[in-house]
């Protein structure tokens, strides 16, 4: 029950604080901007470019958002008023994580749809291999974002200083989220989609479990 309330609340919070709008408008705009700055992509579809941009920018942004939000709320004792009620500490973290992740999925959906529309206009009907490539990029992006977000939660929990938590989550989040793609670059026999579908949730669950244990032990 508390998860539902907290999740809805977090979404509302992101909506009210304009973060959601920045994500939903900013990321598609960024993709468009990229297209117009470098229009000669030598036939490379915009949708694929969008997926690549999202995986780096979206993940970094989400990771920073989560670490900043958790570290600052922790510092301002916002959680004290939750924890004196029948609320599981894990639910506070999960609500934050999934609300940011959901916002990212929606932003990704909007950006990719926009990319596909532009591809349709400028390239015409896309060959199947291009669509497959886009789906592949998207899957990898989502896995990378899942990992980045969990790293953001982790640093938000363990670090008290907002700037330090942000810097660490952005830097280390980016590095660690690369595990969703790196092995497939060096080992041809690994299917990138299946690998990222496996590694993304597994890494995220591990990080969230560790964060949750640390948060549960924390004295407020």
């Amino acid at each position: 029950m508390s998860f539902k309330i907290l999740f809805a609340d977090e979404l509302k919070g992101f909506y009210k604080s304009k973060v959601m709008i920045v994500l939903w408008v900013g990321l598609p705009l960024l993709s468009l901007l990229f297209h117009y700055i470098t229009p000669n992509t030598e036939g490379f579809p915009i949708s694929s470019i969008v997926a690549i941009i999202l995986s780096s920018v979206g993940g970094t942004l989400a990771s920073a958002m989560l670490s900043t939000s958790i570290a600052s709320e922790k510092m301002r004792h916002v959680y004290d008023l939750y924890l004196i009620r029948p609320v599981k500490r894990t639910n506070i973290l999960l609500a934050k994580y999934f609300s940011v992740y959901l916002c990212l999925i929606i932003a990704t959906g909007i950006s990719l749809t926009l990319g596909l529309i532009l591809d349709q206009i400028f390239i015409g009907n896309l060959p199947e291999y291009v669509l497959n490539q886009t789906i592949e990029s998207l899957t990898i992006s989502m896995a990378a974002m899942a990992i980045s977000c969990s790293i953001g939660v982790f640093f938000g929990i363990i670090i008290s200083s907002v700037p330090v938590a942000t810097i660490l989550s952005v830097y280390i989040g980016n590095q660690i989220s690369a595990i969703s793609i790196l092995p497939t670059v060096f080992l041809d026999f690994i299917d990138p989609v299946i690998f990222s579908l496996l590694i993304g949730p597994i890494a995220a669950v591990i990080m969230l479990t560790v964060s949750s244990i640390l948060f549960s032990r924390k004295q407020f």
């Binding site: 709320e73 301002r76 004792h77 004290d80």
Partner: peptide, 15 residues
């Protein structure tokens, strides 16, 4: 059965 008024708890400002 308990109500708690903390010394310094913050609220989320958007609320």
């Amino acid at each position: 059965i308990l109500g708690y008024h903390p010394q310094e708890a913050g609220f989320q400002n958007w609320r």
